[in-house]
Design a protein around this nucleic acid. Structure first.
Length: 508
RNA sequence: GGCCCGUUCGUCUAGUGGUUAGGACGCAAGGUUUUCAUCCUUGAAACAGGGGUUCGAUUCCCCUACGGGCUGCCA
């Protein structure tokens, strides 16, 4: 094993909000880096100015920070290998494209996009399988291979725009070794002469990616499966640039699929099925449209990384709840699966529930305080913490802790079903007597209320079912909920009695 | 269409040339609970199909089917 320090990068394009698939890729990179004591780098791949979306880069950085997978280096995070935005690295790429041209591995192409479209249209009309710019077609196009030397020189001197394309070799086996998939072999005849340097002076993803990974001394390229088809091109680029010896290892991750049907998870699936697809709320620029985020929905960051980690990876043990540092310790690319994973909203919710239950009542209270205040709730922190304690086991998200409105104000309506089924002729009399019993309790604790309540039932030879539901509906308006003794104690004797009186007045 | 990748309960998955094919989510039933939730117990539920190789294949090979990705001067 070489002692070279592990360096991995997450290289998103700032064309919009990062989605969960992207976060998972970032997460696996982070876990792998930390597992091996290496560095996790954020590189912004903005070689296409036309697709730049304002705010996207900030969104990406904030998403990573919130998720707890903050980069060690990168755009906005410092580091010795900068700049980390490809747009700022623009002057660095040209020389490598020139080097490839000089070596005969690349050539100038003068075809306009209109001409390329035409070629594709013609092929389509002729029902030829999809058209490719390759060893067969390049001779009929306008480039430095088909054109005479003089003609090429004339066009270059005239300042005519051109792109630089890689010259794919004839009939050569290109082998890519992938950590999750093993050897992937493809014949170069299947590959096309991809543009590596655009006429606007910027490199395309393929060149920029290889050059930057080399210059930044990246040791492992961990990215989505959508890149697998272009991996052979990248391998060839390393070879032609003379960097074969330090070529990073590849790991192509399976995709995250939509929960129902098939296909890649997309932002519309979230709307349709009612779960977030983005880590943070994303406000579409120039509109009022907002896509919901995991953070705002009430997911804990560690629940988020936990559930994401398990989409395509597992530790091989029954344990499923892993804090971020536990994930780091357990992670390995060898245990990453090969097949796409359908996102399961139910399981996502379950993960959050696990973390909610591990969070202290005080911390939960602090978490929901702003929301409570916004709702007009005015109670002490201790009171709110107690509410959290009572509501905790029936919630998956912090917001749900606030669903027991009756904790904060007297009921305005009384559960119809409970009243219909439980409120009998003699109920008002029984409730009146219960009220007297409650009033007589000096120390109004849950335990005392329970003891006195049970003694009352025994003395009156009444069952729980005849009394408690009515007690509950008078005080909370509900037919279900946490322990009534706890609720009464929390509200206090005075409030409890007042609510009984108010309820009796309406129901009797 | 071409190329590449994949295929174990509904979902996420473990797993081995010989297993009662295991777990989790969800679902169902029962129990606990004043109720709901929690919790406990139990249950239904899978090796895509066909050929090989083999004494024996879910496991190895091939084909088919199905699914996915790519096929841009996007990333």
């Amino acid at each position: 094993m070489s002692a070279k320090k592990v360096r991995v990068r997450f290289a998103p394009s700032p064309t919009g909000p990062l989605h969960v698939g992207g976060v998972r890729t970032a997460l696996y990179n982070y876990l792998f880096a930390k597992k091996h004591g290496g560095d996790f780098i954020l590189r912004i791949e903005d070689t296409d100015q036309t697709r730049y979306v304002p705010g996207a880069e900030e969104y990406i950085a904030e998403s990573l920070k919130w998720s707890g997978i903050t980069p060690d280096e990168g755009a906005g995070f410092g580091g010795d290998y900068g700049p980390y935005r490809q747009s700022e690295r623009k002057p660095m790429y040209r020389q490598y494209a020139d080097q490839l041209v000089a070596a005969g591995h690349a050539y100038y192409a003068f075809d306009t996009s209109e001409e390329l479209d035409e070629a594709r249209e013609r092929a389509k009309a002729a029902k030829i399988a999809s058209w490719q710019y390759n060893h067969i077609t390049r001779n009929s196009m306008k480039n430095s291979i088909s054109l005479s030397e003089d003609e090429v020189k004339r066009r270059l001197d005239a300042g005519e725009p051109y792109a630089i394309r890689i010259k794919m070799p004839r009939n050569e086996e290109v082998r890519v070794q992938d950590i999750v998939r093993g050897w992937v072999v493809v014949n170069s005849n299947q590959l096309d002469d991809k543009v590596i340097f655009k006429s606007d002076g910027m490199p395309t993803y393929h060149l920029a990616n290889v050059v930057d990974d080399h210059l930044m001394e990246i040791t492992h390229v961990i990215r989505g499966e959508e890149w697998l088809p272009s991996a052979p091109l990248h391998v060839l680029l390393y070879k032609y640039l003379g960097w074969e010896d330090t070529m990073p290892q590849f790991a192509h991750l399976p995709l995250i699929l939509k929960p129902d049907g098939n296909g890649k998870l997309s932002k519309r699936d979230g709307d349709r099925l009612g779960f977030p697809v983005f880590p943070l709320n994303w406000k579409v620029p120039g509109t009022d449209e907002v896509y919901p985020g995991y953070r705002e929905t009430g997911y804990f960051p560690e629940a988020f990384t936990n559930l994401l980690a398990f989409l395509g990876w597992n530790p091989g043990t029954p344990q499923e709840v892993f804090k971020l540092d536990e994930l780091v310790a357990a992670f390995s690319l060898e245990r990453v699966g090969k097949s796409g994973a359908k996102f399961d909203p139910d399981k996502a919710k379950w993960y959050n529930q696990q973390y909610l239950r591990e969070t202290s009542n005080e911390a939960l209270a602090a978490l929901i305080k702003p929301e409570a205040v916004a709702m007009g709730v005015d109670v002490s922190d201790a009171f709110l913490a107690k509410v959290c304690e009572l509501m905790k086991e029936r919630a998956s998200f912090p917001m749900e802790l606030l669903e027991g409105q009756y904790f904060f104000s007297a009921p305005t309506a009384y559960d119809e079903k409970t009243v219909r089924k439980k409120w009998k002729e003699n109920t008002p009399a029984i409730m009146g007597e219960l009220r007297a019993v409650l009033e007589g309790i000096a120390d109004f604790t849950a335990a005392n209320v329970e003891t006195e309540f049970k003694a009352f039932l025994e003395a009156k030879e009444l069952g729980f079912g005849a009394v408690l539901p009515n007690f509950r509906v008078l005080v909370t308006g509900q037919g279900m909920g946490p322990s009534m003794f706890e609720i009464a104690a929390l509200l206090g004797k005075e409030e409890t009695l007042q609510r009984i009186d108010a309820g009796m007045a309406k129901l009797a």
